[in-house]
Design a protein around this nucleic acid. Structure first.
Lengths: 180, 180
DNA sequence: CTCTACATGTAATAAGTTACATGATTGC
DNA sequence: GCAATCATGTAACTTATTACATGTAGAG
């Protein structure tokens, strides 16, 4: 949820990668919290970065995949990325359909509220597992710090949901389940 | 960071409002965490909602502002909103330039890292104050629940940053401050 | 009388998402 | 031989952001 170009540069700062690999790192790696950009965003972004001279194609040592295009960040790209990292960060923004729904939970039945909270707790636990796995791996102090922040936030959310879950059920609307 | 149309409907479910007032509620109200949509998004969204028959103009009891256009949600709009609230929520997404920067803090100096962490703690505290104010006000159990979740998350982040702040300073890069 | 807050709107731009289209390689 | 995974790309669509343009009302 930051500019896809910057996100790609961020991946490439840490090592050469193809578009496909960048996508994978958005899915599973420590940057997965920040982006879920698909191929439709990544490939155009890479083309543009290459045009701008911020990244370059690496001589492809054929590892069986002739179509694979591995990119490497250039000195200019590194400069550009460093500079963009130096601007004061914009305030955090959350896109949480979950919280938004809960905000209007008087339109939902108790059963539905309970269900979405249960699902969310599961999701949060999964993310905690992911972060713990990242934490255990070969990560820099900076990564560990950010991971740690993610961990305490997610754990706080889990514990809050578990403890206060019952409170909101009383706030459920009286309407029966809506079709669909 | 949900569809602006749905966000506007969400405001209007709770009472009539003009575009300007919707904007204000995005700025200061309990929905401020979810959106920072500007007039350029809100007015077109309202026009479209009106076209679709989901909202309607209220007879303007002139309160000194002849240009003011107050909207009210229609029955169809309420149905549409309720239905959209019934779909399972997408996973939460965070746009945190702050965490992204910290992730690459080996490109920053210790002074800069310290500064952005201090600023972030200030921002978080401000949000906590906002949420506490919302909590104290006339809010439904659902609102209180969501507010409470926001509170524990923000407090967890503050406490983590305060406690672990020193750890990341050691991870600062050796490069001198970059111009700009 | 001037500044701030109120109040609405459009046009140009930028950006991302979705769906489509293609093809190679590996494991079973 | 077939499915899953690897691998890249484009076009149409939707959406939001930014900048601009305009005007009123109240406070000092």
């Amino acid at each position: 949820m930051i500019d896809v170009r910057i996100l790609c540069l961020g991946v490439l700062v840490r090592g050469d990668a193809s578009g496909y690999e960048i996508r994978k790192s958005f899915e599973a790696g420590p940057l997965s919290l920040f982006s879920d950009a698909g191929f439709g965003s990544i490939y155009p972004a890479l083309h543009r970065l290459q045009e701008e001279g911020l990244i370059a194609l690496v001589d492809k040592g054929i590892d069986g995949r002739p179509d694979k295009k591995v990119y490497r960040i250039t000195d200019e790209g590194r400069r550009y990325f460093t500079q963009s990292i130096h601007r004061p960060p914009a305030p955090d923004k959350v896109r949480s359909e979950f919280m938004f729904m809960l905000f209007f939970s008087d339109l939902l039945s108790a059963r539905q509220i309970d269900r979405i909270i249960a699902d969310r707790i599961d999701d949060l636990r999964e993310t905690v597992n992911l972060l713990e796995r990242c934490d255990a791996g070969h990560s820099t102090p900076a990564e560990k710090f950010v991971n740690g922040l993610g961990l305490v936030i997610h754990r706080a959310a889990i514990s809050y949901l578990e403890q206060h879950r019952s409170e909101i059920l009383g706030a459920a609307g009286t309407e029966p389940t809506v079709a669909n």
